[in-house]
């Protein structure tokens, strides 16, 4: 199935979990925050989230700022 990851279409297995997607893309879940369809996903819930076709996933990190 297709999902939108950080604005780009990505092909993934049906019913992939958010945790597996993050691992597949090398995003260490302790250092990044995922937003699925506008919902900020608490770290404790990452493994419980199953993705669906056309879900929009944003992976957010810290960057330099004042």
């Amino acid at each position: 199935m297709k999902i939108i990851l950080n604005g780009s279409e990505v092909e993934v297995n049906e019913k992939i979990s958010l945790l597996d997607l993050m691992r597949m893309k090398n995003f260490d879940p302790s250092k990044y925050v995922a937003i699925v369809n506008e919902d900020v996903i608490p770290k404790s819930k990452i493994q419980d989230i199953t993705l669906n076709e056309n879900d929009r996933v944003e992976i957010i990190t810290m960057m330099g700022g004042g």
Binding site: F27, Y32, E58, I59, I60, T61, M62, M63, G64
Partner: peptide, 25 residues
């Protein structure tokens, strides 16, 4: 202080890895 943005990829070392433990963010 730090800002937040969309991550480019999971390969580049994230800023958090450069911040010494105990530093208030």
């Amino acid at each position: 202080t730090v800002a937040i943005r969309r991550a480019r990829d999971g390969i580049q070392k994230p800023l958090i890895d450069y911040i010494p433990k105990g530093t208030k963010i």
